[in-house]
Computed example of a mutant assay.
Amino acid sequence: MFRRNSLEKTIEKAEKYFNKGEMYKARNMYLKALAQDPRNIAILNNLAFIYHVLGEEDTSKGYSEILLKECDETLKHETVKEILILKIPALVSLERTGEVMEVIDELLKIDSKDMNALFQKSYYLEKENRHTEALDCIEEILKKHPYHIGSLLSKGRNLVELNRFEEAEKCYNLVFEIEPKNKAAITLKSQLLKRKYNLTITSHDLMLKAVESFEMENFKASRDYFKKALDMSSEYAEIWFAQGELFIRTGHISDAIASFKKAFEINPTSGGIVKHKEFFKLLDRMKKINVFLGFEEKG
């Protein structure tokens, strides 16, 4: 009993360090725990990951090898979903990607609707250029989780590879309604436009720079990039909406209102906003406060 309690305390300390990102301390605690329980699959998995993060790939792969051996030993007696899940990163670490699909298929035999298994299967099918099959997996996820951003982005990528550009663009546009400044969607839509229209630079390349400047609180640069993006192409609602968010952040409410109105003209559900009257009432109140405080002229 004392041994078990001691192990639990050691693992608890390791997890605390791990969650705080203190990888060296987490490693030391997990090594101490492993000395107490050498065949603990969860500890082996965490050590493989930690050594990968620390850049010690040979050691990481060594733990992955041990992890796989222990997983396979357990699976000889019983098919356990959690053990199959732990096999996947170990196989990826060891570059045994062909076996990854076999494990994923085993997971789907247990639960054909398992979201993580479907998503991982779509990823490997996409890597093998089996885009139609990848889409089948993604559609299963979206039936249950229609706003799952990772799946929408994945669906768009596969559709682009099949030259189904309009459908792909709808996927990215839906992501923008959920996250107006999603950088992955911005990048992917730029790639789509370049491929569709044989372009070398797009308004979305400039939008990405605007969003990155926004995140660094370089608001002047962000405003300049938004202007350049809209000068290049003014027909994309997501650029207008993201610019509106910048104007709110910098206190230019009149400019924000104008930018949002333009976004809604192009796409009435921009930013996921459906109650436009209430939205603009809120902005109008913000503007009146700014005028009262002298931050903005009445008009």
Rank of each mutant, 00 (worst) to 15 (best):
E167N: 02
L118R: 06
E169P: 13
E56N: 03
E78L: 12
E102Q: 11
E161I: 09
F119E: 04
E56A: 08
I110W: 05
E140M: 08
E161P: 08
H77W: 04
T97M: 12
S112L: 11
R96W: 09
E70T: 00
L68C: 08
V92W: 03
N46C: 01
R164S: 14
L86F: 09
K109M: 08
L107A: 00
G150Y: 09
H131K: 10
G150Q: 03
D72Q: 10
I141T: 14
Y123I: 07
F119M: 15
N158M: 06
L75F: 00
H77N: 12
H131A: 07
F165S: 12
V92F: 01
C71W: 01
A134V: 11
K113R: 14
G98I: 03
E56D: 05
V80Q: 09
D58R: 05
V100F: 00
S112N: 11
E102D: 13
L68I: 13
Y123G: 14
Q120S: 14
G98C: 05
R130C: 15
D111N: 13
K109I: 15
P146N: 04
T132K: 15
E56V: 07
V103M: 07
Y147L: 13
P146I: 10
E161N: 12
I66F: 04
D114N: 13
Y124A: 09
E167W: 04
Y147K: 09
A48P: 01
H77E: 04
S151H: 07
S64N: 08
L107N: 00
E70L: 03
Y147R: 15
S64R: 01
I149W: 01
L84I: 02
V100H: 04
K69Q: 05
N116W: 08
G62E: 02
P89R: 07
A48R: 01
F49V: 13
Y51F: 10
F119W: 11
I110Y: 12
L162W: 11
K81D: 14
L108S: 07
Y124F: 10
